[in-house]
């Protein structure tokens, strides 16, 4: 366990602990004896449940990250972010327009962005948050979808926005608008759905379903495989 040989000093809500080097903020809290209930989901950097802020003993500037992915460093001050509700517009995705006016109608406050860029700086996924917010303002739905795609909806951008905006929900609306209205149609998908509805595969399917294990296995072993 060579990696565990060194210990680092951290402070949880101000209290001093020594933890093995190489732990994440999440596992360091657990090492200190805390049983986490809130602030922990996938433990793998995908769900955003563990959004956290930290700074250092001699450096008050706040940093932002996912507790399950960030390795602890010497003299880190750790806290957990308290829950706070964020604004989410309620809508029927079937009755929208894929336009900037639509986004503005549902999230009128986005005009209040004054470009401080705090949202971008606070994003643990390193997304260009402020830039997709300005794309949203301009009604460039596709750009918002592209730029915001890797968002885990941890909420740090909303937590830090001095204007109370909710970039992650605005981005979600734009991605849904893109998928529903703007993505090019997949004709082969439509065709296949129609074929299945028309019963094209039913007779063959019945045969397969009734086939004995040996025959099925033979078919399987002989099936031709499309090159990856």
């Amino acid at each position: 366990m060579a990696e565990l040989a060194h210990m680092v000093d951290v402070y949880v809500m101000g209290r001093h602990y020594r933890v093995p080097q190489g732990l994440t903020i999440l596992t360091a809290l657990e090492y200190c004896g805390y049983r986490v209930v809130r602030g922990c989901g996938c433990r793998a950097g995908f769900c955003g449940a563990c959004a956290t802020v930290y700074n250092f003993r001699n450096d008050a500037q706040l940093r932002y990250d996912l507790a399950c992915q960030k390795t602890v460093e010497q003299d880190m001050y750790l806290v957990q972010i308290p829950f706070f509700p964020a604004l989410k517009a309620i809508y029927d995705v079937d009755r929208l327009e894929p336009s900037g006016e639509q986004v503005l109608a549902l999230y009128p406050d986005i005009v209040k962005c004054y470009g401080c860029n705090t949202c971008t700086k606070s994003c643990p996924q390193e997304l260009e948050t402020m830039w997709f917010m300005s794309d949203a303002l301009r009604g460039d739905i596709r750009q918002v979808a592209v730029k915001s795609f890797d968002c885990v909806m941890c909420g740090l951008c909303a937590a830090r926005c001095p204007q109370g905006l909710v970039p992650y929900n605005v981005a979600l609306l734009c991605r849904r608008l893109y998928g529903h209205y703007l993505a090019p149609v997949s004709q082969h998908l439509e065709d296949r759905i129609a074929e299945i509805r028309a019963g094209k595969f039913d007779a063959e399917m019945d045969k397969l379903k009734k086939m004995g294990r040996g025959d099925l296995r033979r078919l399987y072993d002989q099936r031709e495989i499309e090159p990856a």
Partner: peptide, 29 residues
Amino acid sequence: KDAPEVIRWLETLGVNWDKNPDGSMHELS
């Protein structure tokens, strides 16, 4: 048999599938 229908249902809800420029799905093995 439900699978293609499910893919479209998700798209109608607003899921962004990886696609080729002609609209066909970008599919992998």
